[in-house]
């Protein structure tokens, strides 16, 4: 094998997200093969879903509590440690969205790791960022707004996704001042009026996606970093418009399901590709076999001497 070929095989593609495909619509039935293929080919994939597709069939009010208990007994193993939190939720909307988004995350993680959704331990960092406990070969991010759920999955580093209704009114709102850096305010003032609000929504989702990728959510103040709306290649800028983060970051925005703006932020560790992310192949064969052999030897020894 020539060196050039070997190098090309491991070097991170500079614009990994430039070729990232459109977000994939998923229901519990899939298409999970497409999701796996996208992830294999592009290293990252963005999924979106309709809230209704991910809720157990709604039951009429008069149904008895026995049916509730039955539904709960099916959900408990699937939600794992989130089940208690789910059961304690009183607001029906919040509850439904919580359930649907957790199911979506677990199905998506199960699909890409080639494991059962119930075997996935969905955990949270101290700041609230969700992750797959013990399976850091993929990073995940979740966003939901109105009827839409969005999940980002990457095998390259860190990912953040965010979705907002395109029609959300930001221009002239109190929020606007909290979103923009001086540089962004200046750039936005130069674009035509009718495009200003959609530009703000786009900025907002980019900022959310970025701060989710670094695990900080809204704690990282949006006036501390920015983007250049309309730039051909999105990159993080400092408040005065000078370059901030480097090429290890890439960004992309789409319009999804007609009404939503969805942005993704991706940080590439630069370790190159690990195309195989299945849970089954994660353990090292040699190491595990050596330890299991040792364990068997110790067990036999204990039996014969004990």
């Amino acid at each position: 094998m020539s060196t050039a070929v070997a190098a090309a095989a491991v070097l991170p593609a500079p614009s990994a997200l430039a070729v990232l495909s459109e977000p994939v619509l998923v229901t519990p039935a899939g298409p999970w093969d497409t999701v796996r293929r996208e992830l294999a080919e592009h290293a990252s994939v963005v999924l979106y879903a309709r809230l209704g597709d991910w809720l157990p069939e709604s039951r009429p009010q008069e149904q008895d509590s026995a049916a509730d208990a039955e539904a709960d007994s099916a959900l408990a193993p699937l939600l794992g440690r989130d089940f208690e939190r789910y059961r304690g939720m009183t607001n029906q909307d919040v509850r439904a969205r919580f359930l649907a988004s957790r199911l979506l995350l677990k199905y998506a993680a199960g699909a890409v790791l080639e494991a059962r959704p119930a075997d996935i331990d969905l955990a949270y960092k101290p700041g609230g960022r969700p992750y797959l406990r013990g399976c850091d070969q993929v990073d995940i991010s979740l966003s939901h707004t109105a009827d839409l759920l969005v999940v980002g999955v990457t095998r390259r580093g860190w990912i953040g996704v965010d979705a907002e209704l395109e029609s959300r009114r930001l221009e002239g709102s109190a929020v606007e001042r909290q979103i923009c850096t001086p540089h962004e305010t200046e750039l936005i003032s130069r674009i035509e009026q009718r495009r200003r609000n959609s530009t703000l929504v786009r900025l907002w989702t980019l900022k959310e996606a970025y701060s989710k990728a670094i695990g900080q959510g809204l704690r990282f103040r949006f006036t501390e970093f920015g983007f250049a709306p309309g730039a051909r290649r999105m990159q993080v800028l400092r408040p005065d418009g000078t370059p901030g983060a480097g090429d290890e970051w890439s960004f992309r925005t789409w319009t999804v399901a007609g009404d939503y703006t969805v942005s993704v932020a991706l940080f590439d560790f630069g370790f190159g590709d690990t195309a195989d992310i299945a849970a089954q192949t994660m353990l090292d064969e040699g190491m595990v076999d050596a330890l299991l052999r040792e364990a068997r030897r110790a067990e036999n020894h204990r039996r014969t001497t004990g």
Partner: peptide
């Protein structure tokens, strides 16, 4: 115990974590 294939599962990795 004593089988790599049975251990190679996200549930095991989460327990190890």
């Amino acid at each position: 115990p004593l089988s790599r294939h049975c251990l190679a599962n996200p549930q095991t990795y989460a327990l190890a974590d």
